[in-house]
Deep mutational scan, measured.
Amino acid sequence: GLPEGWEMRFTVDGIPYFVDHNRRTTTYIDPRTG
């Protein structure tokens, strides 16, 4: 799974992105792969 505090969501286009609730940021880069 994802690191603690992270969540995976999808855009309206079906593109996955990642929400970091710890820092309240979003990124398209998987936190597991950097």
Score class of each variant (00 low, 15 high):
residue 24 R to T: 09
residue 29 I to T: 11
residue 10 F to H: 10
residue 6 W to P: 00
residue 15 I to Y: 09
residue 5 G to E: 03
residue 29 I to E: 11
residue 14 G to K: 07
residue 11 T to Y: 02
residue 1 G to P: 15
residue 18 F to G: 00
residue 7 E to Q: 10
residue 10 F to K: 07
residue 34 G to Q: 14
residue 21 H to T: 11
residue 16 P to Q: 09
residue 2 L to F: 08
residue 14 G to S: 06
residue 1 G to D: 15
residue 23 R to E: 13
residue 1 G to K: 14
residue 32 R to S: 05
residue 27 T to N: 04
residue 15 I to M: 09
residue 34 G to V: 13
residue 19 V to R: 05
residue 20 D to N: 10
residue 2 L to S: 03
residue 28 Y to M: 12
residue 34 G to Y: 13
residue 33 T to N: 12
residue 17 Y to F: 11
residue 19 V to N: 00
residue 10 F to E: 03
residue 26 T to Y: 15
residue 16 P to R: 12
residue 6 W to T: 00
residue 22 N to M: 12
residue 13 D to G: 12
residue 27 T to D: 02
residue 5 G to S: 07
residue 20 D to T: 06
residue 30 D to R: 01
residue 19 V to H: 06
residue 11 T to K: 02
residue 10 F to A: 04
residue 34 G to S: 14
residue 34 G to K: 09
residue 22 N to D: 09
residue 22 N to Q: 12
residue 1 G to W: 11
residue 2 L to K: 03
residue 5 G to I: 05
residue 24 R to K: 15
residue 28 Y to T: 09
residue 28 Y to A: 07
residue 34 G to D: 14
residue 5 G to A: 07
residue 31 P to S: 01
residue 23 R to V: 07
residue 27 T to G: 04
residue 20 D to W: 08
residue 9 R to H: 08
residue 9 R to F: 11
residue 7 E to W: 07
residue 33 T to Q: 11
residue 15 I to T: 12
residue 8 M to P: 01
residue 14 G to Q: 06
residue 9 R to Y: 08
residue 6 W to G: 01
residue 4 E to T: 13
residue 19 V to P: 01
residue 10 F to Y: 12
residue 11 T to A: 06
residue 3 P to R: 05
residue 6 W to Y: 06
residue 32 R to M: 03
residue 16 P to L: 09
residue 27 T to L: 04
residue 15 I to E: 07
residue 5 G to K: 06
residue 18 F to Q: 00
residue 14 G to E: 04
residue 33 T to W: 12
residue 11 T to E: 04
residue 2 L to V: 03
residue 29 I to K: 10
residue 28 Y to L: 12
residue 15 I to Q: 09
residue 26 T to E: 13
residue 1 G to I: 12
residue 16 P to I: 10
residue 1 G to M: 14
residue 33 T to F: 10
residue 24 R to I: 07
residue 18 F to T: 00
residue 15 I to F: 08
residue 11 T to I: 00
residue 10 F to Q: 05
residue 27 T to R: 03
residue 11 T to W: 02
residue 33 T to A: 11
residue 30 D to P: 05
residue 23 R to G: 14
residue 23 R to W: 08
residue 14 G to N: 09
residue 2 L to P: 04
residue 15 I to G: 02
residue 28 Y to F: 15
residue 3 P to I: 04
residue 15 I to N: 07
residue 2 L to D: 02
residue 26 T to K: 14
residue 21 H to R: 10
residue 23 R to I: 06
residue 13 D to L: 12
residue 34 G to H: 13
residue 9 R to V: 06
residue 1 G to H: 11
residue 13 D to R: 13
residue 4 E to I: 12
residue 27 T to K: 03
residue 23 R to F: 10
residue 27 T to S: 10
residue 29 I to P: 02
residue 12 V to M: 12
residue 31 P to Q: 03
residue 25 T to A: 09
residue 21 H to W: 13
residue 25 T to I: 15
residue 33 T to E: 12
residue 21 H to E: 07
residue 14 G to P: 00
residue 22 N to Y: 14
residue 31 P to H: 03
residue 8 M to R: 08
residue 7 E to G: 06
residue 32 R to Y: 04
residue 6 W to Q: 01
residue 34 G to I: 14
residue 6 W to S: 01
residue 25 T to Y: 15
residue 33 T to M: 12
residue 24 R to G: 15
residue 19 V to D: 01
residue 4 E to M: 11
residue 28 Y to V: 07
residue 4 E to D: 13
residue 5 G to P: 04
residue 33 T to P: 11
residue 16 P to K: 09
residue 31 P to D: 01
residue 33 T to L: 14
